[in-house]
Amino acid sequence: MRAHSFRLSRPARDVGIAPRPPISGLPIAVAERLGDIASAALLAELETWPKPGLVSHVDSGSHDDMDHTTFRRSAAAIRPFFARLAIAGAAGAEMERLRRIGRDAEEAMLAATGGVNTHRGAIFGLGLLCAAAGAASAEGAPARLSATQLTDIVAQCWGDDILRGPIPLRSNGSGVLRRFGAGGARAEAAAGFPQLREIGLPGLRRGRALAGDEDAARVQAFFALMAEVEDTNLLHRGGGAGLQDAQDAARRFLGDGGVGRGDWEARAVAIHHEFVRRRLSPGGCADLLAATIFLDAVERWL
Rank of each mutant, 00 (worst) to 15 (best):
residue 289 L to K: 10
residue 104 D to P: 02
residue 54 L to K: 06
residue 162 I to D: 05
residue 26 L to G: 03
residue 205 R to S: 04
residue 38 A to P: 11
residue 97 R to S: 14
residue 94 E to W: 06
residue 194 P to R: 10
residue 175 G to C: 07
residue 26 L to P: 02
residue 32 E to M: 05
residue 33 R to A: 09
residue 263 D to H: 09
residue 209 A to H: 12
residue 234 L to Y: 04
residue 118 T to Q: 02
residue 108 A to N: 14
residue 206 R to M: 10
residue 107 E to F: 10
residue 81 F to Y: 15
residue 205 R to A: 06
residue 151 T to L: 07
residue 241 A to P: 06
residue 195 Q to M: 08
residue 302 L to W: 05
residue 239 G to I: 10
residue 290 A to V: 12
residue 285 C to N: 09
residue 75 A to K: 12
residue 143 A to C: 05
residue 291 A to I: 02
residue 299 E to K: 03
residue 205 R to K: 08
residue 65 D to V: 03
residue 67 D to R: 08
residue 257 G to M: 01
residue 180 F to G: 06
residue 41 A to C: 01
residue 179 R to Q: 14
residue 204 L to A: 12
residue 133 A to C: 04
residue 262 G to S: 15
residue 217 A to P: 00
residue 51 K to S: 07
residue 259 V to C: 11
residue 145 L to M: 08
residue 100 R to T: 15
residue 175 G to T: 12
residue 298 V to K: 05
residue 182 A to M: 07
residue 8 L to T: 06
residue 169 L to Q: 14
residue 55 V to T: 03
residue 181 G to V: 06
residue 60 S to V: 00
residue 2 R to D: 15
residue 183 G to W: 10
residue 232 T to Q: 06
residue 216 A to S: 14
residue 65 D to S: 14
residue 136 A to P: 10
residue 136 A to S: 09
residue 268 A to W: 08
residue 99 R to G: 10
residue 145 L to D: 12
residue 201 L to N: 06
residue 118 T to A: 01
residue 86 A to T: 04
residue 266 A to F: 03
residue 263 D to T: 08
residue 273 H to A: 15
residue 291 A to T: 04
residue 3 A to S: 12
residue 225 L to V: 00
residue 90 A to D: 09
residue 276 V to L: 04
residue 229 V to R: 07
residue 72 R to V: 12
residue 81 F to K: 02
residue 147 A to S: 13
residue 113 T to I: 05
residue 278 R to T: 07
residue 248 D to A: 14
residue 67 D to N: 15
residue 15 V to S: 01
residue 132 A to G: 03
residue 122 A to Q: 05
residue 12 A to K: 05
residue 68 H to C: 15
residue 66 M to Y: 08
residue 84 R to S: 15
residue 40 A to F: 06
residue 73 R to W: 12
residue 165 G to E: 08
residue 245 D to Y: 12
residue 300 R to I: 06
residue 265 E to D: 11
residue 140 G to Y: 05
residue 65 D to I: 00
residue 104 D to H: 15
residue 14 D to G: 08
residue 70 T to I: 05
residue 229 V to T: 02
residue 32 E to F: 01
residue 13 R to W: 13
residue 126 L to W: 07
residue 10 R to Q: 15
residue 155 A to K: 14
residue 239 G to M: 08
residue 119 H to C: 10
residue 38 A to D: 09
residue 236 H to D: 13
residue 128 L to D: 07
residue 278 R to S: 06
residue 61 G to W: 05
residue 254 L to M: 04
residue 130 C to T: 10
residue 150 L to W: 11
residue 90 A to Q: 02
residue 234 L to N: 01
residue 295 L to D: 04
residue 98 L to A: 11
residue 178 R to C: 01
residue 214 E to G: 00
residue 253 F to T: 02
residue 110 L to P: 10
residue 166 P to K: 11
residue 38 A to C: 11
residue 143 A to Y: 00
residue 229 V to W: 04
residue 59 D to R: 04
residue 205 R to F: 06
residue 98 L to F: 01
residue 144 R to K: 13
residue 6 F to H: 02
residue 132 A to K: 00
residue 3 A to I: 11
residue 115 G to Y: 12
residue 125 G to W: 04
residue 279 R to Q: 13
residue 20 R to G: 07
residue 277 R to G: 10
residue 114 G to M: 12
residue 32 E to A: 13
residue 102 G to D: 00
residue 107 E to W: 10
residue 247 Q to P: 03
residue 18 A to Y: 07
residue 249 A to I: 01
residue 75 A to M: 12
residue 91 A to D: 12
residue 193 F to W: 14
residue 227 A to R: 02
residue 171 S to G: 07
residue 151 T to Y: 05
